[in-house]
């Protein structure tokens, strides 16, 4: 299932820390470590799932990968070359190669633009296609994500959450990127819509060979779409491996706790699962201190 792949993007030993608000004018600054010794490789055509709870640093890592977050240490490489966003030529290539889809389908589309304009914008910025080619591509993208031609002239507020997320995906694909960072793309959607969107993402990957960095807090969702999974806890990647391996034979206590904490819709096993979760939580607390 996972043939050896060329690394498309790699994050090497990244550290990020944020200054806390000073408690008083005279007090010294204190720092919050958001990312510590984080390394991650995403292969071409591969999906890497990134799992963690709030404050684990997964969104900061997403911002690092997208070149939105300055690093205190470490590097990001695209096809082996260091990404230097101070140089216009590398910036241009990088901005075309890496796109993003965010969690909130309501905030991620400009409410004053039509769908056609939204889909056109990344290509206009890339500046490689003629107006006619861009128009064709907009129609092609709309078809890909299941929008009709007459919906292109509408505004985002006229769509449901699931449809907006399809538009956001189409926009991310517009400049034919190599990697799309998906930051909790289905967390805000209803369960019955989630699998539609995941299915769409998979079909796109099968036809275009695009890579995904898929971020979520729900291991079960991540497992179904990812080739590899990385688990984050308190700014570190505590476990990384093949998706099925991480989920079936987790090695880190936190991964085990996370897996045991996920509820299952089977009422016959819930009592047993509960006991298992409590046991793991106690074991975890003994080793790492209270979690909350």
């Amino acid at each position: 299932m996972n043939p050896p792949v060329d690394p498309l993007l790699s994050v090497e030993d990244v550290h990020v820390r944020f200054a806390r608000r000073r408690r008083g004018f005279w007090r010294p600054r204190t720092w919050h470590t958001a990312l510590s010794e984080v390394s991650l490789t995403i292969g071409a055509g591969q999906t890497v799932g990134l799992v963690g709870e709030s404050g684990s640093g997964k969104s900061t890592l997403a911002r690092v990968v997208l070149g939105l977050q300055p690093r205190d240490q470490g590097q990001v490489r695209l096809r082996g070359e260091e990404v230097d966003l101070t140089r216009p030529d590398t910036t241009r290539a990088f901005r075309r190669a890496v796109q993003a889809v965010f969690q909130d389908p309501y905030g991620s589309l400009n409410p004053t633009m039509t769908v056609a304009t939204i889909l056109d914008e990344p290509m206009r910025i890339a500046g490689e296609l003629s107006t006619r080619d861009r128009q064709d591509r907009v129609r092609e993208l709309a078809e890909l994500v299941g929008l009709t031609a007459d919906q292109l002239d509408r505004y985002p507020y006229q769509f449901s959450g699931g449809q907006r997320q399809r538009i956001a995906i189409a926009r991310a694909l517009a400049p034919a990127p190599d990697l799309v960072v998906l930051d909790e793309p289905v967390s805000a959607l209803d369960v019955s819509i989630q699998s539609q969107v995941i299915d769409l993402l998979e079909r796109i990957q099968a036809t275009t060979g695009v890579s995904y960095l898929f971020i979520a807090h729900d291991l079960a969702v991540v497992r179904h779409i990812s080739h590899r999974i990385a688990v984050m806890y308190r700014g570190r990647i505590v476990e990384e491996g093949k998706a099925d391996q991480v989920c079936d034979e987790p090695s880190h206590p936190y991964t085990r706790l996370l897996l045991a904490s996920a509820l299952d819709a089977d009422p016959t096993t819930s009592a047993r699962r509960r006991e298992r979760r409590r046991g793991l939580a106690r074991a975890f607390a003994d080793e790492f201190g209270a979690h909350t």
Binding site: L68, R96, V98, F102, G107, N110, E121
Partner: peptide, 14 residues
């Protein structure tokens, strides 16, 4: 802070 602005930055908008 709106995500669509972040989206435009990611797409390389000036």
């Amino acid at each position: 802070e709106e995500l669509y602005v972040t989206g435009a930055v990611v797409a390389g908008a000036s």
